[in-house]
Design a binder for these strands. Sequence first.
DNA 1: ACCTGAACACCGTTCAAGT
DNA 2: ACCTGAACACCGTTCAAGT
Lengths: 259, 259
Amino acid sequence: MRDDADPGGDSTVDSIVDTVAGAAADPRGPADRPPLSRERIVAAAIAFVDRRGLTALTMRRLGTELGVEAMSLYRYVAGRDDLLEGMVQQMVDRLHLDPGGGRPGSGEGWQAYLQWLAHGVRALARDHPQVFPLIATRHPAAPWLRPPLRSLRVVEDFLSTLVARGFSDEGAVAAYRAFSSFLLGHLLLEAAMVGSRTAPAVTPADEGRSVSMASREVDLRRYPMLRRLEERLSEDHADAEFERALEDLLDRLERELDG
Amino acid sequence: MRDDADPGGDSTVDSIVDTVAGAAADPRGPADRPPLSRERIVAAAIAFVDRRGLTALTMRRLGTELGVEAMSLYRYVAGRDDLLEGMVQQMVDRLHLDPGGGRPGSGEGWQAYLQWLAHGVRALARDHPQVFPLIATRHPAAPWLRPPLRSLRVVEDFLSTLVARGFSDEGAVAAYRAFSSFLLGHLLLEAAMVGSRTAPAVTPADEGRSVSMASREVDLRRYPMLRRLEERLSEDHADAEFERALEDLLDRLERELDG
DNA sequence: ACCTGAACACCGTTCAAGT
DNA sequence: ACCTGAACACCGTTCAAGT
């Protein structure tokens, strides 16, 4: 359970070197260490979790990552919880930051809009599989605002786009719920699959069954159907499955809109 | 962010009383403190999380809850991580523990079986909304075994039941994926809704906009559609929505089976 | 204005020692 | 056999103090 292959607590040494030799001794120059800011701290936290996982994220480790003592972070974030919240917000904010990224105009239908939005959120989940569960799991600020669209701006956009395209108020809300629950389920599973890179190889060997409690190896002997379908179950058709399930959802919404 | 309204660290006092006055001084008698066991520890952890939330679960607190020092727990669980895994397993194991609970026999179709299973998992999520995210989020032991059916036995049962009812191998695997992603998305949203009991009341008041960074109050002034749909969005039709979405899924699976 | 040292109250975990 | 005391290396967070 040790997740710390860190090259020792030499932040103190770094500080001494900086003090003695001056900033010019840093081969990367001062441009590499712009002044602290909430945005920079949150971005560093996201990058850190991408590399080392959520449980490894610590105020102290993030501090040394930024070349600063952990205490300095408290000028910009109210605490670890606020930091996590900031990460969720910055992730979700990236959704609309590229309106040139193919965002359908008002000439196209709501289906094109939902396709665009779904793929945008999926890109977030795939780029940051270790961060995504945070989006899905933390309580929303507004109790009625369900994940994974944790941004008021995005939800506002979602609802007004659908209403402008012919949905009733009721239909838009129903569509929002169906859409977000669909996305949440799918992307959480995808992220979990990626997260299991450290998985132990399945050993169909026969070293006796003296395993009492440790050794979480998978023993398929008692599960014939799993053994039979193992290969099929491990196939990864995430892309195709996502497209198909998304189309099914859009079809269903369309039927409800017409009917 | 203080979640500790605990009545002080008086476990030491308890120990002294026990030692001085003997076990008979405990008004509840010794039957209240059966010997430690992995099962009992895990059950206590689930109950603890139900009451105080996942972040409050600590080896030390769980120890004092059981009238024991934290170090004693390490005889039965390999560490905090193993404890969490145990909680997931014990939760999932409760699914099949009541076969008299209406489990459809082989006379009934696969639809009845999936209905039964879906409602069983949903009951787990509703009874333990604070624990459920654990089931959904932790990596599965087998990389290809997706949540939320974190039990090999349950997945084996799922697949063999569907194959026995006419599904092809391929169809059963596809149904398993669609079903688990549906359940995961829906139940995680439901659990998150319940988890936001501490939500701040929406204050549509007008105290000036001098809020700079703190004060996570929801300000709907910039989001007209959210304001318009707020009431509708906060309506809770979880039961009806679940039934409807489940039926949609079953219909879809049926179409794929026939087609 | 921005960062840090030192301190506090907690953690998970190990292990020799008690009974 | 089962539990504990004491210790270790970490946490998050506060605050007076440095520059």
